[in-house]
Every structure is written in C-alpha cells, then in structure tokens.
C-alpha cells in the first residue's frame, strides 16, 4: 500500500469511527434527556431535591421499601398498609390501624401527587417527602421500629445491601432509606383527567353535569379559594371548622406555627382522584364527597378561628350534585397508577 492510500483509508476510518461515536453519544444524550419520571397532562415538572435526583434503580429500591412489612417491628405493616394503592394511596378507614391494633388520630393523607406538596402531614410539620418518610416507621403507634433497627434490618438483607451500595455507594442509612422511598413516591402521579383534557380543548371530555360542577368549583362554590393550582391545593392551612365542635379540638397547624390564628387549621389536601381516598377531612369524619360539599354549603362549623373564606354558599341540591360529579368524574385520571407489590429481596 502506498502512503497516500493509507492516509486516505485512515482518514475514512477515523471519520467513520468519529461518526459512530457521535451517533452513539447523541443517542445516550437523548436518553438522558428522556425524563426518568413522566409527568401526565395537567401537572407541572417535578422539582427534585438537588441531593436526591431520580434514577430507575432508586425508584425500584424505594418501591420495595414502600411495600416491605419488615420495616415494622412485628413485620406486619408497611407504608402501603396505610397508604394503599387500591385505596387511593390512603386507607379506607377513618383512622389507620398501626402496631398492635393502635389507631392514629388523623386520617391517612394520600400519596397521590405528594411530589408537589410543599408540606407533609396534616399540620405541615415536614417540608419534604424525605423528611416525612421516616416518621411513621419510628412512630410507636404506627410501625414502631426505631430508625437504628430499621437500618440494621435492611442491611442484614443482602438484596437490599447490594442495591444501596450500587445506588448510594454505601450501606443503607436512615438518610438514604428516606431518599429511596421519597423518590418512589414521586412517581405516584395522577393527571390526564377529563378536566385536563377539557381545558386542553376537548369539549366532550366532561359531561354537562361535570361542566356545571366545574363552573361552581371555580365560582359560586368558591372551592378554588383554597383548592387552586394543578394539584388543587394552595399548600396553606385553613380552619374550616371540622372537629372544632369536639370537646378538645385538634389544634392542627397551631402546634407547629404557634400562630394563634392557626388553631384548628389543617393543610389544604390535593384533590386529584379524590373519589378514591374516602373518608375525608383530617379526622376522617366525612364518608362521601356529598357530605363534604354539604359541610361547606352550610358555612362550615362556626368557631372563633373559622377562615373568612368559609361562608354559606346557598347551593341548590342540583348544584351540590353537579359539584360532586365534577370532583368524581372530572378529577379522576385515566391512568391511575395502581402499583402492585414488587418482589422483595
């Protein structure tokens, strides 16, 4: 071979290799751009904490932990026990039952769209999913397993230890257990409901009754005073009178904020797929959405700290019905993520 020919073929070779590299690089780039968690229609992008980005492996690990009953002292209770996918990621009882049959004092909040919540728990004491995840594990009336023991148990299971090493570069710790569970929880998203499709232009997406209910929701019934935004919560705390007629009302947010006006105030729940997570309110006192609407219609339960946004609505029975229809029909996602328990290590 002459030198000239060898140069030409070398150039071609290197050009070819460079091209191949470029193609594979761009493929991997576009794969990196593909979101790890796909967000359905009607929901905004998720804000992930900088120190806890989502990966497929982390989500899988978090899902195992979420369903794993070994995170409770007597191996009978997991996160999924009280935040069950088939029960709207809540628990169909007024209060969930924890360790040795003990009952909690507040209704189980749903995990649906918790990815967007600014605060967690009815009194908003946790500022992130990571912060929330460990609470029930150690709570004596819930899962009753100290964090230290939880970590020991997880690390004693080789299948878990391996995953933690691979994902976090260390054994399981309190912190990375919480990170994994939180990352999984961020995949529990409900959107792409008839409401979203109607807003996007499909005028047939909502029935007539649901459309009337929607007008009421954003108008006469004043629901969007507090149930506003893509997940239908303003992330704030309101006293709507629920439980204020009890002998010793639950102080709610006041215990955390120390603001007098927060007495009996609770976090505005999000509303997507609300039909699935009965019963309602922080004390689980309302079994149906109609009961809920009736509560607001009559102006809530008067008490010294009642929010000024609560007043008699004067809705007719038809209007009440339309409003309930909007919530049931309009806010139910078409791809409800009914996750099943995965194989556990």
């Amino acid at each position: 071979m002459t030198t000239a020919t060898s140069r030409i073929s070398a150039r071609t070779l290197s050009a070819g290799v460079v091209c191949a590299l470029a193609i594979s690089f761009s493929i991997s780039l576009s794969q990196a751009e593909e979101p790890v968690i796909k967000v359905p229609l009607g929901l905004p992008p998720i804000q992930f904490p900088e120190d806890n980005p989502p990966t497929a492996e982390k989500i899988a690990l978090g899902k195992q932990l979420y369903f794993d009953k070994r995170l409770s002292r007597d191996n009978t209770i997991s996160c999924a026990s009280c935040h069950a996918p088939e029960k709207g990621y809540s628990n169909a009882d007024q209060f969930a039952t924890g360790f040795k049959g003990q009952k909690g004092g507040r209704n189980s909040p749903t995990v649906i769209n918790a990815a967007y919540n600014k605060f967690h728990f009815w009194d908003g004491r946790a500022g992130s999913l990571e912060e929330q995840a460990l609470g029930p594990i150690a709570n004596p009336i819930e899962m009753n397993l100290t964090h230290k023991e939880a970590v020991e148990r997880i690390n004693a299971i080789p299948g878990y230890k391996k995953q933690f090493q691979k994902i976090f570069g260390s054994d399981a710790t309190e912190e990375n257990i919480a990170k994994a569970i939180a990352t999984y929880e961020r995949t529990i998203l409900c959107g792409d409901a008839p409401y979203d499709r109607f807003k996007a232009g499909d005028k047939k997406a909502l029935s007539e009754s649901a459309q009337r209910g929607m007008q009421l929701f954003f108008g006469k019934a004043a629901c969007s005073s507090c149930h506003s935004g893509p997940t239908f919560t303003d992330h704030a705390f309101h006293n709507i009178g629920v439980g204020m007629d009890a002998k010793e009302p639950d102080a709610g947010r006041k215990a955390i904020s120390n603001l007098g006006g927060d007495h009996g105030s609770f976090k505005t729940p999000a509303l997507r797929d609300i039909a699935r997570s009965a019963p309602y309110m922080h004390d689980g006192s309302m079994k149906t959405l109609k009961e809920v609407v009736d509560h607001y219609n009559k102006g809530g339960i008067p008490n010294e700290f009642l929010d000024e946004e609560i007043f008699k609505l004067n809705l007719t029975p038809q209007e009440v019905d339309d409003l309930v229809t909007f919530m049931k029909e309009g806010l139910s996602s078409s791809n409800y993520p009914e996750h099943k328990e995965p194989e556990l290590p």
């Binding site: 060898s6 073929s9 070398a10 150039r11 070779l13 290197s14 290799v17 460079v18």
Partner: peptide, 13 residues
C-alpha cells in the same frame, strides 16, 4: 493496524 490507525487519527483529530 486499522485499529491503531483509527486510534491515531482519533487522537490527532
């Protein structure tokens, strides 16, 4: 040889 040449071209490039 082809491999080495490619590598060399790549390096240069």
């Amino acid at each position: 040889t082809a491999f080495c040449l490619t590598a060399a071209c790549l390096l240069l490039g």
